[in-house]
Simulated scan of single mutants.
Amino acid sequence: MTFAVVATFAGVATLALAMLIEVGSLVAFGVLLDAPLVRSVLVPARTLLIGWRIW
């Protein structure tokens, strides 16, 4: 799913309008940062720290 979202916003980033290029680039960067860092590192680390209370 992450690839589809990144591909969509990368497509928006290739448009001719400057504002859409900026928005598409920033959102694609945010998704690329969110997928590997937040979901695979920060969420498990938070779960480890909070323990059983997270459920």
Results as ranks from 00 to 15, higher is better:
24 G>C: 02
39 R>K: 15
39 R>Y: 08
32 L>N: 02
25 S>W: 11
45 A>Y: 10
33 L>C: 08
28 A>S: 14
13 A>P: 02
8 T>G: 12
20 L>D: 00
40 S>N: 13
43 V>L: 14
43 V>P: 03
5 V>C: 08
50 I>P: 00
22 E>A: 13
17 L>H: 07
4 A>Y: 14
3 F>A: 14
42 L>R: 01
25 S>I: 08
8 T>M: 15
1 M>W: 06
9 F>C: 02
37 L>D: 03
53 R>K: 07
19 M>T: 12
49 L>P: 00
40 S>Q: 11
6 V>E: 09
54 I>D: 03
35 A>L: 09
11 G>W: 02
27 V>W: 12
48 L>K: 08
6 V>D: 07
41 V>R: 12
52 W>M: 07
40 S>I: 11
51 G>L: 01
48 L>I: 09
9 F>N: 01
35 A>V: 08
35 A>K: 04
7 A>E: 11
55 W>N: 15
20 L>Q: 08
22 E>S: 14
7 A>H: 06
43 V>R: 03
25 S>A: 10
5 V>K: 13
27 V>N: 06
45 A>I: 10
55 W>A: 15
16 A>T: 10
8 T>E: 08
4 A>F: 13
14 T>A: 10
33 L>Q: 09
52 W>Q: 15
53 R>A: 15
41 V>A: 09
13 A>Q: 01
34 D>A: 10
17 L>N: 13
29 F>H: 00
12 V>R: 00
14 T>Q: 09
50 I>G: 00
50 I>T: 12
3 F>L: 15
20 L>G: 04
12 V>M: 04
8 T>N: 10
36 P>F: 10
50 I>Q: 01
45 A>F: 14
1 M>T: 06
23 V>Y: 02
20 L>C: 10
12 V>G: 03
38 V>I: 12
22 E>I: 14
15 L>H: 03
49 L>V: 05
3 F>R: 15
30 G>S: 13
33 L>K: 06
23 V>C: 04
30 G>H: 13
33 L>M: 13
10 A>V: 11
17 L>A: 12
22 E>M: 15
25 S>M: 06
54 I>R: 05
33 L>F: 10
42 L>W: 11
12 V>S: 03
34 D>P: 04
23 V>H: 05
12 V>D: 02
5 V>T: 13
23 V>R: 06
15 L>G: 08
12 V>C: 05
29 F>N: 00
31 V>R: 00
45 A>P: 01
21 I>M: 12
6 V>H: 02
23 V>I: 12
52 W>V: 03
44 P>C: 05
24 G>Q: 02
3 F>C: 14
1 M>C: 08
2 T>R: 05
49 L>F: 07
47 T>S: 06
16 A>S: 15
31 V>L: 07
16 A>W: 14
46 R>C: 12
